[in-house]
Amino acid sequence: MAFLDIRKLSKNYGSTVALDGVDLSVNAGEFVTLLGPSGSGKTTLLMSIAGFTQPDDGGIVIDGVDVTDVDPEDRDFGVVFQGYALFPHMTVADNIAFPLKVRKWAKADISAKVEEMLSLVGLDKLAGRKPRELSGGQQQRAALARALSFGPRILLLDEPLSALDRSLREIMQRELKRLHKETGVTFIFVTHDQEEAYAMSDRIAVFHNGRIVQMGAPRDIYRKPASLFVAGFLGGNNIVTARYLSAEHKLKLFGDYLPAPPQFDPAQHGNGEVTLWVRPENLSFSEAGGGYSFPVTVLDISFTGSSERVVVGTVDGQDLMIQASSESAAGLQIGQQIRCSFNPGAIGFLASD
């Protein structure tokens, strides 16, 4: 049995279905991310695990014990919210000590634990400051120290990085990975940011319309999206259509013909209209050769810092986004006719309905 076992969890708000029979198993010590767009059900599930939201149906089992109806304070979970929820009138040290005092720890034990947590999150020299005197990253460290201070069985994190700027988010991602490794606590993390999920997670549960539509290791989900939604939501994939010609075992794609690659299975992926995806980084500019080559028209060019984002139109009316180096995109003009190419082995096919 998994350490955390969610069984057929459902929650409705009037006519709105927030959770639709969700099943989720998490092993002890895992870092699992609940990933999805706003309104997909991920935060509702997190709040149900914490005990702040009561599900309409289903169960929550921790280490073999059903806690579905157990009060939040008796679940022994740490929670870090998006706004950190630090007590503004308390110092950093007092914020960390608060859950220990509530649990009636001895003063000497509280003092030792506070020192340990301050050291763990690198706030030793800021113990006497109030939250308003801290930066966003420092506030987050204080909130993490408080949530971990009493040794929770699970740490629940509700988009705690969303208010930070990009560089600080990347620093805190590394900090969270370090804290997870050093403490061994089971982390359940909510985000809508795919890169954030990829960077930290052991496994990702992708949410859509109150359901988990795919779950797996980050690389597996990225390389093999299971549905049109997952393919479009993760990684900015280009979703395009082709027509399979069974007699020739070819795909009519972008106005030309491509021999069906080995990963294409007519029985699984369709016999007729086919949906496939290709990542922006796997498309390149080419005059000829380089795999499958086809003509396009440049529609838009955007500088993104480390690369150029180029949108092109194909002869059959489909748009593609290409992530290219500044060198390869140099000299391109909107309206220019060029050729693109990709390795057929790099594309993926979605199962037909």
Rank of each mutant, 00 (worst) to 15 (best):
N237C: 11
L245P: 06
V213K: 03
S227V: 09
L234K: 01
H249V: 09
Y222S: 07
F229R: 05
I212R: 06
G210K: 05
N237A: 11
R243N: 15
L228E: 14
M215E: 10
Y222L: 10
Y244Q: 05
A247F: 12
K252N: 15
M215A: 08
A217N: 12
A231I: 01
Y222G: 05
K252M: 15
P225W: 05
V230S: 01
L228R: 14
L245M: 12
A226H: 00
G236R: 03
G236Y: 01
G236A: 10
D220W: 10
D220T: 10
G232Q: 09
L251D: 02
N238Y: 00
R223W: 14
A217C: 08
N238G: 08
K250H: 13
A242R: 04
R243W: 03
F254C: 00
K252L: 15
E248T: 11
G210S: 06
P218H: 11
I212Q: 03
P225Y: 04
F233G: 03
N238L: 10
R219Y: 15
T241R: 11
L228A: 15
G210C: 06
I239E: 06
V230N: 03
R223F: 12
F233Q: 01
D220E: 15
G232C: 11
V213A: 07
Y222K: 04
P218S: 12
S246V: 10
G232W: 00
V240Y: 01
Y222E: 13
G210L: 00
Q214M: 02
A247I: 12
Y222N: 07
Q214H: 04
A226L: 09
